[in-house]
Write a protein that binds this DNA or RNA. Sequence first.
DNA 1: GTCTATAAACAGATAGAC
DNA 2: GTCTATCTGTTTATAGAC
Lengths: 213, 213
Amino acid sequence: MTTTNTAEISPRDRILEAAEELFARRGFAAVGISEIAESVGMSKSSLFHHFRTKAQLYAATVDRVLAEVDLELTRTLARGGSAADRLDRWIEVLIDLMARTPAHARLLLRSLFEEDEISNVLPEQQEADEKLQRIIQHANNVLRDGMAQGELRVANIPHTIQTLIGIIVYHFASGEFGDELIGRSIFHSDEVKRRKREIKAFLHHGLVIERGL
Amino acid sequence: MTTTNTAEISPRDRILEAAEELFARRGFAAVGISEIAESVGMSKSSLFHHFRTKAQLYAATVDRVLAEVDLELTRTLARGGSAADRLDRWIEVLIDLMARTPAHARLLLRSLFEEDEISNVLPEQQEADEKLQRIIQHANNVLRDGMAQGELRVANIPHTIQTLIGIIVYHFASGEFGDELIGRSIFHSDEVKRRKREIKAFLHHGLVIERGL
DNA sequence: GTCTATAAACAGATAGAC
DNA sequence: GTCTATCTGTTTATAGAC
């Protein structure tokens, strides 16, 4: 058994994990390299051996999250089914991912609404962008199919995607505010289940009761 | 006519306006005092004459946004009407506010999902918190009334509030990503109208068409 | 691959003149 | 109320030993 034991976590991945936790919570600018190094139990210099700049580390961190999201969504959609079923699974998988790794939700929200905090020409940044495009394309395809086949109400697709992101990603990124509003941790198992039920009910019935019925 | 001419904007407000624009776009940590000072055409020291610390300036900036949101929501809800009508107006007013001042949406989203980036004991922070509580309480009241009177489907109220925030605030805070997804500026007048229509349709009909109908 | 030491730039904040 | 000059600490990043 040499150093290529797959059971051991590489220094690179330990750094990425610590970086995700910190960047997710406080954002790129508020987190120092020394803080990440301390959290992972290394010196700053060792960290710079694995990532040349802070920006590159951040981009790699975001890329890693988007890769996981893209992978799981691609996998569940490949199973096929009706558009309504695939939409259900797209939502379910995304929620499970956010609920399992709270840092993912926050970092994903940051990657959506923070203006490019970093140079924008890093290869890691471009790869992350492509993954984000694929994630959105998945939703696009499902919604298009569902509307074409009469399973979904005809609506503006990009706006519908924004609505889905807002309903799912914002909620699980809302941290202390969300906890206080909901009354307990938004990541509590029962509360995650409740979120799924509430979203499903919203998608099926809306909120306002039609007077004409 | 002395220096108390109300038509002139006070240095304090000019600072707050410049700070909002910068903090909204890049967050507390990424914006330097000198940058704000330069943007407003002052030296750092002059800025420190009006606000003792950067944290206090940030808290005052957030407080100012929440005060405007709270004021407009309180005003529109005071006009009364059915719960469904008041919900419509709560949404309409919030959207108009976000659409009119893009920085508001981003700063509001930050105040919701960023963990207290500042000391948490500043009076400005506490005032902002109270305003946020009032904004949420408005939604709480409207939803409670609507469900009690059969105008709204019975749903979990905190989760419904999270859904409304996600649908409205996240969308208008989504910046470049939103623009790219939608295909033009999310703040374009027609696109804001479309957002209102899409949200209203979602609230009235959901997204999924029931097979049993 | 990890470390100590350090460079170079910049941050928030203060002193004190005008 | 605004300025210039400065203090003090921290930042990202590098040099070079082991």
